[in-house]
Design a protein around this nucleic acid. Structure first.
Length: 897
DNA sequence: CAATCGACTTGGGATGAACTCG
DNA sequence: CGAGTTCATCCCAAGTCGATTG
């Protein structure tokens, strides 16, 4: 709780305006600037229709009104007042302030405010604009694109639409069920600006288009289908992980059915892509391009949306992402740590600078090891261990019931490190004769003890911990108090690598102050080392980076572990926003990029062809780039590192992918591809063995260098963000119908699920899943029995007869036919709900929705949709997400990705 | 140009608190 | 109110990608 407390304070501070906790904390940072810019831009340039404009103004500026309904006040900051806020000084922070040197903080804060205000003002006016420009990508005009330009998903969808069977077997039922509800009433209000959100949304989103469409019907899932989930077959991953994980097996079966409709887009002008010329994107005309694949499909819709999309462009252009150009300077400064950081001045050319003043208290270390004295057995006899030896033995003992225990590599690595600690002459000579049970049991007892503690005790402990940690939880960046992400130094333990990691089981030694380098403002007091008698390894004052501290990873000394600010900080928010702006920019280039790579499928130059095919896969399947990995890491791949054996050609034009990706999560998918791609893959495979690289001429730096020629700042990962967000935007806009909040939330979840499937975000099936399912089934059966009984009673009641006795032989109350009918209806509703829940549960058992929400879906899409449809944002974003996405909360309701 | 360094984003799982439902 | 779930957080591993180095 302590944690929270602080945050609250912060909010309170601003509260006056309103309260929202989540709101922006600082106005000045560039991020905020940007925000404002954007919004401004939008307003200025974007306005599409009249009503809209009105609306925007209102919404943006005084969000409150409308929001109140839609979103809770708290979440949405009242933008009305330009942000003033200076958290730091906030009351509660009394203590905090104490830590920060008074001087600094005060001064910073003041200046800060001022600047911030000014900055904000300026921004607003400057609004950029127009850089819009120049070259448009050309062609697109014929929008018709059959689907080419669409995002992958869309493409897929098209096809799949016909047979949604592609979807996992389980789904069909579900989709049907949903359908009915969704449609519903149309209570629209009037469209004016002031009109409540609902009104707006009705106008825009539904406008013609899809309203009638049943939601499940069309497109079902594109990519999704590819991936299948039947749990039956588990492949590689499973095997390897030895039963532990039950990830979604993705089976191939279905996938094959789904085909992509996409046809080669060859048509468009291929050449133009060329790059450099492309510089900024062009204006509108490209209408369809940005439209997600799926959307494009239905032209009608596009018309509507396009208007909005157009407006956005201006905005995007503005985006800051590209500013990094000045980066080089950084190095210099960095080395010479001396410097510049001194000046607090506000906007000193920001170039590369990430902050001007930075104050924090360093990191907190885990408590020293407390020996428990419980003796393990060796060859049946108790053994004495030194505290150090016992500590490591305990780490191992605690893992008795995990799968790691069945992995030889784990035990081997553990033994290597532990035996070193034991020393050459120790009685313990072999792990095989060790019995850690006594220690494990002690551990279980401790756990139990903790569980049994009364809630007061627990609370007290928590408070105490909070008290100790409080000072480490916050940093003051440019005068603003921000949460620190991971201020706790990682405790020692046994390394738990994912998949078949060669280093699993190795001892991750304790980190000490002398391992840690602190980065802090030049004028800030250097944090006192929390462990008496020790000192930090180094102190830096590098304002070109955002980390507060780092140490070398004990498992892999070449790598570092950093302490950063929390996701809710404006530094993070700013880069998050830049990430999405870059992805939105891709929207304007995507059509040409697709045309270009399509053309290169048949290029004579092998490298060129490989780049084309790899880009296609990244775009269509949302594969990761695939950097090279060392031998001392788990053997996983991404696009550029795919092995010949990971792809199987299935005539006439399908490819079956099967490989372990990040975190050793298996990716299995069979997709139909364009013939030239199919042929190219075949060529890349010929003459190679299964373990050879499929793209032997390629690596991520070459690929990214090429992408960068197509669009400034473009890299492989941008495609994932783009396709994820565009899919969400598209699905939401296509499928949201009138209905109650719960129904809309379901729509959102379906879209979210779609994205998760595209990105292959999996989770393991919970241990209790099958038990839960059977329990539900049982309940449903029971209810159905009840239903039958009620029907009998109804018949009898109608004839004036009393109901039959119930199962226990007791006489039931004599109800009127009307009453019985009512009961029947209630029961039916209950059954339907249960079945629906069950289906959802089954469908999501291996799909992780959170990852995409956190990392891939532009929060502005969600916020705008919530505003348009009067869905409280809290229904979609939890507290942390609200905080993380504070920068997106004041988005215009008309925002489209 | 390849290898390495460096910084930052993305990811799944574990844990425990907060709800739900009987 | 208690067992079972669901949800939010924490934890830290594992990617991406630009910059440097040699």
């Amino acid at each position: 709780m302590a944690v929270e407390a602080p945050s609250k304070h912060v909010f309170d501070y601003d509260d006056e305006d309103d309260d929202g906790p989540v709101v922006f904390k600082r106005s000045n940072t560039s991020s905020s600037k940007q925000n404002q810019l954007n919004s401004e831009v939008k307003k200025a340039s974007s306005q599409r229709s009249d009503r809209q404009s009105g609306r925007q103004a209102s919404s943006v500026r005084a969000p409150n009104g409308q929001n109140s309904v839609a979103q809770t006040n708290k979440s949405i900051p009242p933008s009305k007042s330009p942000p003033i806020r200076s958290p730091i000084l906030s009351p509660k922070s009394s203590n905090s302030s104490s830590k920060a040197s008074p001087v600094v903080s005060s001064k910073a804060s003041t200046s800060f405010n001022d600047q911030s205000k000014q900055a904000s003002k300026q921004n607003k006016f400057t609004a950029v604009k127009e850089e819009k420009s120049p070259i448009k990508c050309t062609d697109e005009t014929n929008s018709d694109d059959d689907d080419d330009s669409k995002p992958l998903s869309a493409r897929l969808k098209g096809i799949s639409s016909q047979g949604n069977k592609g979807v996992s077997t389980s789904t069909p039922a579900q989709s049907q069920r949903f359908v009915p509800k969704i449609e519903v009433k149309g209570s629209a209000e009037d469209p004016d600006d002031d009109a409540p959100l609902s009104a707006r949304f009705s106008t825009k989103s539904n406008t013609g288009t899809s309203s009638s469409k049943p939601y499940g019907s069309h497109e079902k899932k594109p990519l999704a289908s590819k991936i299948q989930q039947n749990g039956s077959i588990m492949k590689v991953k499973q095997q390897k992980s030895s039963m532990l994980s039950d990830k979604r097996p993705l089976d191939k079966g279905n996938s094959s059915d789904q085909s992509y409709a996409k046809k080669p887009k060859i048509s468009d002008a291929p050449t133009m892509m060329k790059t450099k010329q492309v510089t900024v994107k062009a204006e509108k005309d490209d209408e369809d391009d940005h439209i997600p694949i799926s959307q494009r499909i239905k032209k009608s819709v596009s018309s509507v949306s396009k208007a909005s999309s157009v407006k956005q462009k201006a905005t995007k252009v503005v985006s800051s992402s590209f500013k990094k150009i000045n980066k080089k300077s950084k190095k210099d400064m960095k080395n010479s740590k001396y410097s510049k950081s001194t000046k607090l001045s506000p906007s000193s050319g920001d170039g590369q600078k990430k902050w001007s003043t930075l104050v924090h208290n360093g990191v907190i270390f885990p408590p020293p090891y407390k020996p428990h004295g419980v003796k393990m057995l060796y060859d049946g006899r108790p053994v004495d261990l030194t505290p150090e030896q016992e500590e490591v033995a305990t780490m191992f003992a605690v893992m008795q019931e995990t799968d790691y225990m069945s992995k030889p590599q784990f035990k081997k690595n553990f033994w290597e490190d532990w035996s070193k600690l034991l020393g050459r002459n120790h009685v313990i000579k072999s792990l095989d004769k060790c019995d850690f049970t006594p220690i494990y049991e002690w551990h279980l007892q401790e756990k139990e003890k903790k569980k049994q503690m009364s809630s007061e005790e627990k609370k007290a402990l928590k408070e105490e911990k909070l008290m100790q940690e409080e000072k480490y939880m916050w940093a003051i960046v440019d005068g603003v108090k921000e949460k620190v992400g991971n201020f706790r130094v990682e405790p020692p333990g046994l390394f738990r690598g994912r998949g078949e990691h060669p280093k699993m089981g190795k001892l991750k030694r304790r980190i000490r102050p002398c391992d840690i380098t602190i980065n802090i403002g030049k004028d800030a007091p250097i944090p006192e080392c929390p462990i008496p008698g020790e000192r930090w390894k180094d102190i830096k004052h590098d304002n070109t980076v955002t980390w507060l501290a780092f140490w070398n990873d004990p498992i892999n000394p070449k790598e570092f572990k950093y302490v950063f600010l929390a996701a809710s900080s404006s530094l993070k928010g700013q880069s998050d926003k830049e990430k999405y702006e870059k992805a939105r920019l891709l929207k304007d280039y995507i059509k040409n990029i697709r045309a270009a790579y399509t053309k290169d499928f048949t290029a004579k130059d092998v490298t060129k062809r490989q780049i084309a095919v790899a880009t296609y896969l990244i775009d269509k399947l949302a594969l990761r780039a695939g950097n090279e990995k060392d031998d001392d890491e788990a053997d996983t791949v991404g696009c550029c590192t795919l092995k010949v054996g990971n792809v199987e050609c299935i005539p006439p034009n399908k490819l079956k992918f099967d490989f372990l990706g990040k975190d050793s999560i298996q990716y299995v998918n069979t997709v139909e591809v364009e013939l030239p791609v199919y042929k190219a893959i075949g060529q890349f495979q010929t003459g190679k063995s299964k373990s050879d690289d499929l793209f032997d001429e390629l690596d991520t730096s070459k690929l990214n260098a090429h992408l960068k020629e197509l669009m400034p700042g473009l890299t492989a990962k941008v495609f994932r963000t783009y396709n994820a967000s565009i899919t969400l935007d598209d699905m939401l806009n296509k499928e949201t119908k009138d209905g109650d909040v719960a129904e809309k939330v379901v729509i959102y979840q379906r879209a979210n699920k779609e994205v998760a499937i595209i990105c292959n975000h999996q989770r393991s099936i919970s241990k209790s899943h099958s038990a839960q399912m059977s329990r539900l089934t049982e309940k449903i059966t029971e209810l159905k029995g009840l239903l039958k009984e009620l029907k009998t009673d109804l018949d009898r009641a109608k004839k004036g007869k009393p109901p039959l006795k119930d199962a226990d032989g007791k006489q039931k109350r004599n109800l009127t036919p009307e009453a019985i009918e009512k009961k029947i209806a209630q029961t039916n509703v209950k059954i339907e709900k249960m079945e629906r829940d069950m289906q959802t549960k089954e469908d999501l058992k291996t799909v992780a929705l959170g990852t995409s929400k956190i990392n891939y879906l532009d929060p502005r899409i969600t916020v705008a949709w919530c505003k348009r449809h009067e869905v409280p944002i809290e229904k979609i974003f939890n507290k942390s997400l609200l905080a993380k996405f504070a920068w997106a909360m004041d988005v215009d309701p008309d925002f489209r990705f």
